[in-house]
């Protein structure tokens, strides 16, 4: 993120991802309440559908970006020493990327197996 874009873009990103996360979570809850999949096979088939797969992937990325903006805000507010802040930010990025990769690989595995 360039210095110039780090304010407005982060803010817009936070709002947009919040919207998507909200909508997807509602849809997910709806499915789980009214038409829950029975057994692993049905779960797997559900996620193997390309549309649902992509929607889920966008959901995962949204959560990661949303978490990134939020944690970055907290760190900018409360962690003043620059070295410590950079270290923590780096750790958060690593953690989030790891979560993202793990979630994506399960989505891919579902389609292969």
């Amino acid at each position: 993120m360039s210095r110039k874009a780090s304010g407005l873009k982060a803010w817009v990103l936070q709002r947009a991802t919040a919207l998507y996360i909200g909508l997807f979570t509602l849809a997910l809850l709806g499915v789980l309440l009214f038409d829950p999949p029975h057994g692993y096979a049905q779960w797997r088939d559900g996620f193997a559908d390309p549309l649902i797969g992509i929607a889920t992937l966008v959901y995962i990325v949204s959560i990661l970006l949303h978490a990134w903006v939020g944690v970055r805000d907290v760190l900018i507010d409360y962690v003043r020493p620059l070295g410590l802040r950079v270290t923590l930010l780096a750790l958060v990025v690593l953690g989030l990327v790891a979560c993202g990769l793990w979630a994506s690989q399960s989505l891919i595995l579902v389609r292969l197996v």
Binding site: R3, K4, A5, S6, G7, L8, A10, W11, R72, D73, I76, D77
Partner: peptide, 14 residues
């Protein structure tokens, strides 16, 4: 508006 960009001057408001 340009002068308000960046993570601090305006966007520290939560």
């Amino acid at each position: 508006l340009d002068a308000l960009e960046g993570p601090y001057r305006l966007f520290r408001c939560h």
